[in-house]
Amino acid sequence: MTQLALVIDLNVCVGCQACVTNCKEWNTSGDAGPMVDQNPYGKDPTGTFFNRVQTFEVGEFPNTETIHFPKSCLHCEDPPCVPVCPTGASYKRKEDGIVLVDYDKCIGCKYCSWACPYGVREFDESQKVMKKCTLCVDRIYDPNMTEEERRPACVRACPTSARLYGDIHDPESEVSHAIREAGGYQLMPEWGTSPANHYLPRRKTKLRLRHDEIERADNPLKIDGLLPKPSKSEPSLDDVTSW
């Protein structure tokens, strides 16, 4: 069974909001109808977005760290938002695990948004239905696009490659490797929703250089041979061995 998902690398995200912008652009132009903003240039601008990038400060000044935190529907493997829907408009696809809302069936009762602990469902005030991330279901299967283009709009937009996309049930996929090897984790594990989207934690990125990496003893051009030994005139190891 396939479970498509995003893996978001918090170590890399710079909070540029490119994914937010590209998500909105793609999804407001699609067949499902526009995602209209209310009051876009007024005092209290508001509108429906599938994806938001938030910023948190961890620690106490001066030892603080800034975390940029992209958040969209996590396509939970056991989604609490689905069984509560009285119309069947909210459903989870068997074939790829994407959680979707059928905008033609939704009555806008908002009950599903109460049942999602992550606050990622947003009610569309102009279409009067519930909306949420579709994992760009209208992109990823489009035969008119190239393989490279058949990925979610947010993933395509990210300039730092902080967003990985793939099947987390395939142990050999890029996302499964990332989850396994870079400590991928789920949000609010206490509710047992088993979100498909994972996050990769912040890591210490330090450059460690050993001395011999800067200056090789057997440096053939003798340019950085600053150590007393071997001297410039003496043969080095390279001259006398063939390895």
Partner: peptide, 21 residues
């Protein structure tokens, strides 16, 4: 909620300047 195990975390931005659903 964000999976970071530090006792002191504050939100600086929720991702938009106005309101939302």
């Amino acid at each position: 909620a964000i999976g970071i195990k530090h006792p002191k975390i504050v939100q600086k931005a929720q991702g938009f300047m106005g309101s939302s659903f």
